[in-house]
Nucleic acid binder design. Sequence first.
DNA 1: TTTGGCACTCACCTGAGACGAGTGCCAGGA
DNA 2: TCCTGGCACTCGTCTCAGGTGAGTGCCAAA
Lengths: 340, 340
Amino acid sequence: MLDDRKLEVLRAIVEDFVSTNEPVGSKALAERHGLGVSPATVRNDMATLEDEGFITHPHTSAGRIPTDKGYRLFVDRLSTVKPLSGAERRAIQTFLEGAVDLDDVVRRSVRLLSQLTQQVAVVQYPSLSRSEVRHLEIVHLAPNRLLLVLITDSGRVEQRVLELPTVVAAEEVSQLRQVFGPRLHGAKLIDAAKALEDLPNAAPHSLRPVLTSVLSVVLSTLVERPEERIAIGGTANLTRNALDFPQTLRPVLEALEEQVVLLRLIGEVNDPTTVHVKIGEENSVEGLRSTSVVTVGYGLSGQQPVGGLGVVGPTRMDYAGNISSVRAVARYVGDLLAGA
Amino acid sequence: MLDDRKLEVLRAIVEDFVSTNEPVGSKALAERHGLGVSPATVRNDMATLEDEGFITHPHTSAGRIPTDKGYRLFVDRLSTVKPLSGAERRAIQTFLEGAVDLDDVVRRSVRLLSQLTQQVAVVQYPSLSRSEVRHLEIVHLAPNRLLLVLITDSGRVEQRVLELPTVVAAEEVSQLRQVFGPRLHGAKLIDAAKALEDLPNAAPHSLRPVLTSVLSVVLSTLVERPEERIAIGGTANLTRNALDFPQTLRPVLEALEEQVVLLRLIGEVNDPTTVHVKIGEENSVEGLRSTSVVTVGYGLSGQQPVGGLGVVGPTRMDYAGNISSVRAVARYVGDLLAGA
DNA sequence: TTTGGCACTCACCTGAGACGAGTGCCAGGA
DNA sequence: TCCTGGCACTCGTCTCAGGTGAGTGCCAAA
């Protein structure tokens, strides 16, 4: 059904439409790309492609534009990887290496990604639940006030201030440290609850009331509410081409403000090492049905990823370029976390 | 020149235009508001107002719309405070009180403010340089690795991981704590450099190399680079009325992505206790010349504010309502920080 | 299977005309 | 001096008709 030339025609249509944003006609197509056949032949191929649902035309006397299905075929079989230039790679590396802490890494990644791709960039903070505890510090702020600081191997730091009903002595605090420390160190956060299970029994009796308070904060903060966060940037890129989102800009912006929605978007990757592309109607998120989303997981190589990142843009996007950029940034972020 | 009735006409024009987004004509205006005069009289008043530059009309046969100058007069002299309902106040309070940490307070404030005002909300994180140090914790992560955690009275927590060239012993770390602790506690961050000036001389000789490393990180992090942050939300509200930003949506979004620009915007308040309104061309930020910005400082009552917050929207906005909302949220945030 | 030819469709542009909201101005009245 | 009704005028908007052209679909011939 779809011989090589028809695929070539589809590729040409996608490429032309992506760069010009105008429906592409048979004549222009036959001329511009060295297909070696006449416009009439191209028209026949187009008819076939349209029957199969890969392209469509807005109205009778207009050129063709790719459908979601057409983009899908293009992405899966027709687009060739577009490797980044050495300069781009160096730019990524130096820009990310300037980061001072995790927050900064994430912010820089967002900025970088949105500038590289000229799309909206989305970066998830390293997930707490998949990280390992590196350290739990208990700080004695005031007689009846403690600060809990939890540091994970992904560089993330969570802190909570805790008011105690009773006054607590300095040595009790150091006892607390000794009780929590060994149990948590190196534990996956997701397993933390189990690691702390027998704690009330193992601890000295006098420590019980304080311990219970601390324990409940630790658990609620880190286990029950493994709060996930997302950074986003480059929304101005959505307005770059007014034609891309005539009426649909609003739902897109709304969807992008819903952290929960974005998390689902990024979390949907099943195979975390490869780049995932959701095109138009393939998106489960209502407001993003008019966009395409390119995502990938990042993290320490060879392990479960600790987060995800990606870009959101019009279905009419440079898939090859964006996939490369997303992959590259993810790799550098992963390296950075491993080194930190 | 501008008698009471003319001012009343201006107020009516602003109110009508804000609610309908359509140029308002003399007839409709005379009818809808009980001015007690004929449309012809209103027309005369309008002519005067236009001569004075308070209103204008898009084309000859259209009604009048307020100019920036008109809005300015309205805000300064004509608008009456619109107190929030008790329900609204309670909603603000309960919503903000659910916050678990500073990040959460800021995120909730942004969300709250954008929903209350139906505009873009901007909230600055409490400024480091104006806060006081509550605690500096030095955590011994590994033999040659330290974590510095700095807690301020505004609830903000900054952390930095520090690689040392040499191995450092546990007692040296506690010595460090004793050296830094008393000097920093209660000091304004902006004065921290001075407080630490004589530190290298005062400390035990053996501690010198480590101390120098730690000191430089503390100084660079907290004094030289008092990194300021901004949270933003509700950008989808910019698209609520397509007519508000026909072509100018892009520069607005771009300006809103520039943290530096926003900080300047919020920082421009000279008298921090009152609400400031910048209307259209009054804005120093290029991209925001088509918007109005309502800002106010927040912080512990009676003291210098530690940050600012506000909303950005079309010049055609409900100034009275937005001013009330901004003021109310700022007060609750201030209270929350004081209590935490 | 490809190609040239040809009729056809239909969005887009343009100009003319009708419409009407709203204005500016003026003369008369309180 | 100020307000009012009246009236001519402006000008954006809407609608309709006709022309234009890019692009298509189909067919017959190579």
